[in-house]
């Protein structure tokens, strides 16, 4: 069973995501800020991180960069969600190799489909050997 770390500071959106992903059969961990996201990811490396971009004391991009710096987590799939429509966020997410980017209010079926596809892709493709790290 794939494990997903949900990083979302709004407790009600977090609750909705937990219900949907649990119904999909995923194992879940949650965090509501940058530091706890890093702590949880280090303790229980997830297969995918579903991450809000705006977080208390930081943002999802920082979390992803920190995860990428950890050898055990550098290949983790990431899907971003955001309530912000500032220009350039999607492009930044793409540059960081995110598997998906969704504006709130998102369509849950699309979000779930994207997560499923990202996890299938991670399963099908073995991690790139060292020295061949292009995404």
């Amino acid at each position: 069973m794939s494990k997903i770390l949900i990083v979302e500071d709004d407790k009600n959106i977090l609750k909705a995501l937990v219900i949907r992903l649990r119904a999909r059969g995923y194992e879940l961990a949650t965090a509501q800020d940058v530091q706890s996201a890093l702590d949880v990811a280090a303790a229980e490396p997830p297969d995918l991180v579903l991450m809000d971009i705006s977080l208390p004391s930081g943002n999802g991009f920082e979390v992803l960069r920190a995860l990428r710096a950890e050898p055990a987590l550098r290949d983790v799939q990431t899907v971003f969600v955001t309530a912000s429509r500032r220009p350039g966020l999607r492009e930044r997410a793409n540059e960081l190799g995110a598997a998906g980017f969704f504006e709130k209010p998102f369509e849950a079926t699309e979000l779930l489909d994207c997560i499923d596809a990202a996890l299938r892709s991670a399963t099908v493709h073995e991690p790139a050997p060292r020295g061949n790290e292009s995404r």
Binding site: D10, I13, A16, R20, A83, K104
Partner: peptide
């Protein structure tokens, strides 16, 4: 405007998702 719309969108997302659930 970005702040206002962000603050509106977040609870609205939760309401819609929880109702759909």
């Amino acid at each position: 405007h970005h702040v206002v719309t962000h603050e509106l969108t977040t609870p609205l997302t939760a309401v819609r998702e929880l109702l759909r659930i």
